[in-house]
């Protein structure tokens, strides 16, 4: 199984190890992530304004490249996933945006949202299967109480993301069970950590993250996992090390018994 892969800015730089964990785990589980050549940054923020065309182009280029290879497009970062999935939806449903983008790009065949966009977690759930993943685990994280932190970008708006139940999601909890740990439910797992405002003065992002962490800790979580590098950074900054915040691919690689150098 080969997928086109869009790593995104952070996983290529500061988050290179998270990316490596993801790729190694993929190989171990029998699928390959083939990095798109010359991919461009998705911008990290989905442009909600319907008359914004330029900010959608990099996503469409990636989607079109995957289409030409006849592959589904996999992302590992929630922000990339969010932006590319929603732009793909625009290309499927919004004739105004589709027309403007295609007029600009002048592709051989106009792009109309044909590519399937998958998050790495969806590959685990829908292609590999969590039962199969559980069978492949060699070093289960037995006894660990892990809280899933979904944040915003994977889930909302559910009408466009179609990823999981936006108010009571289950995919990360299934993942936690598959790697042998015990999921801890806490209400703030789908509330915002404020990550988009880490550069804003006034410590707003950390205050917001603090609420998430307090709720998770009060509900008994010993570790948090997330699928977004920005959330991970923001939560780690706020927590001061008491509650470890890990990327889900790190724990995946660990549970599969893979040694990944830093």
């Amino acid at each position: 199984m080969v997928f086109s892969y869009f790593p995104g800015c952070t996983l290529k730089n500061k988050g290179a190890r998270l990316d490596l964990c993801g790729r190694r785990a993929a190989e171990a589980l029998g699928f390959t992530l083939e990095e798109l050549p010359e991919w461009q940054c998705c911008g990290g923020v989905y442009p909600q304004a319907r008359d914004e065309i330029a900010t959608r182009l990099s996503s469409v280029r990636a989607l079109d490249a995957a289409r030409r290879k006849g592959q589904s497009l996999v992302t590992l970062c929630s922000a990339c996933h969010h932006v590319i999935r929603r732009v793909n939806g625009d290309m499927q449903r919004d004739a105004q945006i589709r027309g403007a983008v295609n007029r600009y790009l002048q592709l051989d065949t106009p792009y109309e949202g044909q590519t399937q966009v998958l998050h790495y977690l969806e590959v685990l759930r829908d292609v590999i299967g969590f039962d199969e993943l559980a069978r492949r685990v060699t070093r289960p994280l037995t006894g660990q109480r892990i809280g899933a932190y979904y944040g915003c970008l994977l889930l909302r708006p559910s009408r466009e993301m179609c990823f999981d139940d936006p108010e009571n999601p289950t995919i990360l909890e299934q993942f936690i069970r598959a790697i042998g740990a015990e999921p801890v439910y806490y209400a703030m797992r789908n509330e915002c950590c404020g990550g988009y405002t880490v550069l804003e003065p006034g410590g707003r992002a950390q205050k917001q993250a603090g609420k998430v962490l307090a709720n998770a800790a009060a509900c008994g979580a010993q570790t948090l996992i997330t699928a977004c590098p920005l959330c991970m950074y923001n939560l780690q900054k706020s927590v001061g090390g008491e509650l470890p915040v890990r990327y889900f691919t790190e724990l995946l690689a660990q549970a599969l018994g893979l040694e990944v150098e830093s």
């Binding site: 800015c9 952070t10 500061k14 990290g44 988009y196 880490v198 550069l199 920005l230 780690q236």
Partner: peptide, 10 residues
Amino acid sequence: DMPQQAITSA
């Protein structure tokens, strides 16, 4: 430690 994502999205 700040990820690139923070800057691009801001």
